[in-house]
């Protein structure tokens, strides 16, 4: 055996040393290729959104790269979709009702409370599950774990009926509550995993000083859990910002309250061939999540690792 193993090993070592630089270059080339393929769709969107309508209609966006001499750029598409006309000019006829600025404010009004409310409620619950003994604790927590993968489709029919009865349909409050309900299982689960690992010495001295659970939670646990809260917050924020289904079902078609995804879907139907408007509109809807994503990517990744079981 020894005689066969040794030559094999030396052969493979020789092969390896001879191959490494080429292999290394190949890895870089493949990575650059894949990354380029992944970026091109977004690049096409960005480039088209700043080209004049006529150019977008007549030539492919890539001619900007192949023929840069003739490329022309403009921000007028953004003015049109945001409803901010250039001085002394009117917005193109029929385009004045796009006004994605309104949808942007609506989306912020939906996304911020839909992120903070479930986190707050979940943090309280996670602390309760982790550090307070009470009858039924295990059963309740098992229910939370089971609910992690339940598709939200199950709730649409009954909750819509409740909302119609309570007059919650088409209101921000109704949508906040829906996002809270559907985000809670994951939020409780993630925050429980974090809060239950906080060393108990931290609590003990506080208890000896006569602090209540409520004080300990607000003064000690919330600040200590900041990283976990942040990672879930980004997760939930992107999810609520990008949501279409809950907005369509619970917010309804009223233009005054529509969020960006709904408005963009409307544009796709209404101006399906006006790519200069669609691309600008899509970019407007993407800009805030992209900023959040790139600036807080580290937290986002951490939250995702912990929560890759969600349904």
């Amino acid at each position: 055996m020894a005689t066969t193993t040794v030559p094999q090993q030396s052969v493979s070592l020789r092969k390896r040393t001879g191959r490494v630089p080429i292999g290394k270059i190949a890895v870089y080339v493949v990575m650059i290729l894949i990354t380029t393929i992944w970026v091109i769709p977004t690049l096409g969107l960005l480039v088209s959104s700043v080209r004049p309508p006529d150019d977008v209609r007549r030539t492919g966006w890539w001619t900007v790269l192949t023929n840069p001499g003739e490329a022309r750029f403009t921000l007028d598409n953004y003015r049109t979709v945001l409803g901010i006309p250039r001085e002394g000019q009117e917005i193109q006829a029929g385009r004045s009702n796009i006004n994605m600025g309104t949808s942007m404010i609506n989306t912020i009004t939906i996304a911020v409370p839909s992120t903070v409310i479930p986190i707050l409620i979940a943090a309280f619950a996670a602390y309760g599950f982790a550090w307070i003994a009470f009858p039924g604790r295990r059963v309740f927590f098992i229910i939370v774990v089971a609910l992690l993968v339940v598709p939200l489709q199950i709730s649409l029919v009954p909750i819509l009926r409740d909302y119609q009865r309570l007059g919650l349909g088409g209101t921000y409050l109704g949508v906040w509550m829906a996002h809270t309900g559907f985000g809670l299982p994951l939020a409780v689960y993630l925050l429980y995993n974090y809060i239950s690992t906080i060393p108990r010495d931290i609590f003990e001295s506080a208890f000896l000083d006569g602090a209540t659970h409520f004080t300990i939670f607000t003064r000690l646990i919330l600040p200590l859990s900041a990283p976990a809260l942040a990672s879930f917050a980004i997760f939930q924020f992107l999810w609520t910002w990008n949501d279409l289904l809950i907005a369509l079902v619970f917010l309804g078609a009223e233009p005054r309250v529509q969020v960006l995804t709904q408005r963009l879907l409307g544009l796709l139907g209404q101006f399906g061939a006006d790519w200069h408007l669609l691309t600008a509109g899509a970019f407007v809807s993407m800009i805030i999540p992209l900023i959040v994503f790139f600036s807080l990517q580290r937290y986002f990744v951490r939250g995702m690792m912990a929560g890759s079981v969600k349904g």
Partner: peptide, 24 residues
Amino acid sequence: TPFIFVGPALAILAWYLVLPTIRS
């Protein structure tokens, strides 16, 4: 006290996910 902490979450989960499963 425990139900101050876990109660709201449980009530919302019951309304939005547990009961809807039965009602659906």
